[in-house]
Design a binder for these strands. Structure first.
Lengths: 240, 240, 240, 240
DNA sequence: GATGAATGAGATTTCATTCAT
DNA sequence: AATGAATGAAATCTCATTCAT
């Protein structure tokens, strides 16, 4: 099952990794399109590394090009603008996300629990790609941020995946019927994001194992239909 | 009880609000100290508004000065550097935070629940000050961000407050003894931050009331000692 | 009779117009030479359109290639450099110019008058080709402009044509003997250029018909030998 | 009487000329506004020099700042954008223009003749300011040039001045009644501009004295009411 | 304390040109 | 011949900072 952090990274290559090679090891002639794709991947990987380290605004397009092993001019030439590059990276970060949320089949509650597990495990690897995602996400918080629409879509899709899972669980009686699917979606995604962010800000000070255990308790205690559900939610508290 | 969002805001003043006046209505001659404080508050409020709107890096010191109703030069003159202003604002955002977390006295579980309530209520006001806090916090996510130390301290203090409260609750039997105070602290702070952030990114798409209700369920179901606690947490899951 | 504005324009073709076709309708295999010429014409026409719209420096070679219906790279590939393209266009603009100024035969004064007529008529068509000529000519005004030599030659040839015509007229007694052929050449070319330029800058505000009528009066009143020539030019005014 | 070329030029100063000095020769403390004005004048003069030499697009703002004896950044800082600087220069070039066209009083035909004299004399000085004006004017020829509106206004004002003068002359019987004031305005302004431009492009090849003499003949022969006016303009020729 | 002119480093962006396909 | 990827120099513009008022 997938979590909310991308995987692809071609590493901190200092020179553009040459593409497919013939049997003999001599680099095969690449087509224009291959060159393009190769460059794009290298540039996005480089951007992710630099964004993770210094942030979006503190990273120049020239640095991205050079980190990718190309020229100072390529990043802008390829993407047309910095905004386009950032958006492209944000979109790529999304791709791996929700994929597979639904196809767990059997037990939806267990699916949620293992999603928590996988998500936080991905964060604790500290791959740089994860931090890059959070950095770009953080850059979408200003009210007028051009990036905000990207994450409006992204977050909604993530929440929808959770919500669908919860409803399925309720249908299959693996999740307590009283749960509010939409509320659970927001709270669970928030729980993961907020916990991960704390770890990224202070890896020393945050015990991600302990936090993960509590996160799973939150979910299990609240959604497991086999638990005795005494004194149910007081409805008046729903009013904020 | 206070949550993690600042309150003070002198509004989008287009000219510096004049300070204390004498009884007679004639403006009393303000001391240098008063003028300084006045200017500082106006500048920080202006910075918060602009950061909330456009982000830290997209806001210039000159704009801060003018938004505050002063000159283009004042922000730098007053704080000495942009980094100093940002840090100052981050610190001010902290001030109101954890203060008072412990002095609830009576019922610790209820204290946690009302903290959730208050925190999200503060967010839903959408005061700009709240968004400013999150924007600056988001700017602290890059690994080499100069701001990171500020939020290492801030977050730790917030978590410590929660942790102390949980331990006190366990001592007073208002919180289930099996709970892991440190884990709960991280998870709860994460829950609030992550939920709030989703709302700030997509106020339309996130029902904060429903999310708040689920957040409180998470906490009540997990920490309320009066609930039957069947099939306790599987310890092997603590390993990430 | 021709004036100083080019005629050829293959229109805003979005794809390269295919060349000559065989009788059967199946496109004949064009020779390299033909393709070259075809491409060159399309590129120059495209350049003229873009120069007329945005100016020489604000037009990129890539845009020229695409406007011509070819690739971004062709313009440079074909001409070798931007300077070469511009000079080539300037030269082509000259081609149609003075040609035929002398072979009017009969009445030289009438020839001058109809030249005025034709020149301004060409301008009022507002074909884009005309404006392109003036734009490039305007780009030759800076003292160190690389284009200046091109127009030194061009203008001189235009003036020479006029001068020859005036001398012929004086020989044939169709133009007043007292006229200074060189002076008339400069003044007449200036009159046409300056009038046309005003129209190009402000087509709404300039009545080209009225201006043309006055231009012709200038010439007729000054050069017609049948008019009574009272109080002739005071020679002392020739000193500037 | 004024012509269409500016006069002010503080020379190719390599360091900012210091402003007003006290009696003792020690530079007086300048006010902020004095500094501003001083800088603006120096920058505009520098821009005019460079534009005259290399053209608008081939001159960078950094060069303007340094030519003016200031920093690379000042030109942009002061004017906000290159377009603003160019427009400002165009406007300044206008200022001296039409001023005084009307207050000749006495004899309007003579006023026109001496205007021609003065205009071309200004051009022949080759002051650089004149060429700068023509260079910027030439840059306004492209259809979408941002500068075009500036010269729409400028040229119209110049023509209006001439037209008013012609009408006054007709009222005072110093200019032939049959003349079309608007047509004369366009033709006369065109005559001056076009003649001057030819000289600027090829000072060697153009005899400005001879051309000026012919220009004056054009005007005198056409507008002098004391000349016998035989075979008046054929009206059908007004149609272009 | 406060203003705003001036600096200069650095960012994005454009683009002629070169090079590989 | 033609395409388009890639380079790198140079432009405009932004802005924290410095300096003079």
């Amino acid at each position: 099952m997938s979590s909310s952090t991308p995987r692809s990274d071609s590493g901190p290559a200092k020179s553009p990794e040459r593409g497919p090679t013939e049997q003999g090891g001599r680099p095969r002639r690449r087509t224009q399109e291959e060159r393009r794709n190769q460059a794009e991947r290298a540039l996005l990987d480089a951007a992710a590394r630099l964004f993770a380290r210094r942030g979006v605004d503190q990273t120049s397009l020239a640095e991205v090009g050079e980190e990718a092993g190309y020229s100072r001019g390529l990043a802008n030439h390829h993407f047309g603008s910095k905004a386009a590059l950032v958006e492209r990276l944000a979109h790529r970060s999304q791709r791996d996300f929700v994929a597979g949320l639904g196809d767990i089949g059997g037990h939806e509650l267990r699916a949620l629990l293992s999603m928590i597990q996988a998500y936080l495990a991905g964060v604790s690897e500290n791959s740089g790609q994860t931090r890059a995602f959070f950095v770009v996400w953080g850059a979408a918080l200003p009210a007028e941020a051009a990036l905000r629409p990207v994450f409006v879509t992204d977050d909604a899709r993530f929440r929808d995946g959770v919500e669908v899972l919860v409803r399925a669980g309720q249908a299959h009686r693996t999740i307590r019927a009283e749960a509010d699917p939409a509320g659970v979606a927001v709270a669970l995604v928030g729980l993961l994001r907020g916990t991960a962010a704390q770890f990224l800000i202070d890896p020393q000070g945050v015990d991600l194992d302990a936090a993960g255990a509590t996160c799973k308790q939150f979910v299990r205690y609240t959604l497991d239909p086999t638990r005795a559900a005494t004194n149910e939610a007081q409805p008046e508290e729903r009013k904020l």
